[in-house]
């Protein structure tokens, strides 16, 4: 027996629901895929350096993070060291592996927006004066990586 008009309508409504849910999932996933392919455009620019002197002196570097993709990105610390002058010369001002984001463990940069992220790293008491003069004369150069996560995928972004 042929299905009644009513059950045909209900089944068509079911088809519309299947289409709508899979289309919503597809659009969200495909835009994340495009964002992932364009992940190199996420840009880190050091905006400000500040030396906090004390018993345990730290250097605070403020980064402007620009995320031009269409999906939110989460930023975590990778490994980043601030150098005095050319990083290739290896004149480190901050102690490697002490760098961490100020506040939370990670920061979210919304799609198409720019956010500021503050990174703090310890400075050895011996190099505090050198660090201060490097900041004052604009010789401080950060070099290293941030860990960036788009949905469930991560990569290391060079700075």
């Amino acid at each position: 027996m042929v299905r009644s008009s009513r059950s045909q309508r209900a089944l068509l409504a079911g088809l519309v629901v299947v289409l709508a849910v899979s289309a919503a999932a597809f659009v969200a996933t495909a835009s994340a895929q495009l964002a992932w392919q364009q992940r190199d455009t996420i840009d880190f620019r050091p905006a400000d350096y500040e030396l906090v002197d004390g018993d345990d002196p730290v250097l605070r570097v403020t980064f402007e993070v620009r995320n031009p993709t269409s999906v939110d990105a989460r930023v975590r610390t990778g490994s980043l060291v601030v150098y005095d002058g050319d990083p290739a010369a290896g004149d480190a001002l901050t102690v490697p592996r002490t760098e961490r984001l100020e506040g939370d463990r990670d920061a979210t940069v919304a799609a198409g927006e720019t956010a500021t992220v503050s990174l703090v790293a310890s400075v050895s008491p011996d190099t505090v004066e050198q660090a201060q003069s490097a900041i004052d004369s604009g010789r401080a150069v950060p070099s290293g990586t941030f860990a960036v996560t788009v949905r469930g995928r991560s990569f290391q972004a060079d700075v």
Binding site: V18, S22, A25, F26, T29, Q33, R151
Partner: peptide, 17 residues
């Protein structure tokens, strides 16, 4: 079309919401 869209999301599961 809906099977293809769902399969694509299944494949790129790490990027799916």
């Amino acid at each position: 079309v809906s099977a293809a869209m769902a399969t694509y999301t299944l494949w790129q599961g790490a990027l799916a919401p």
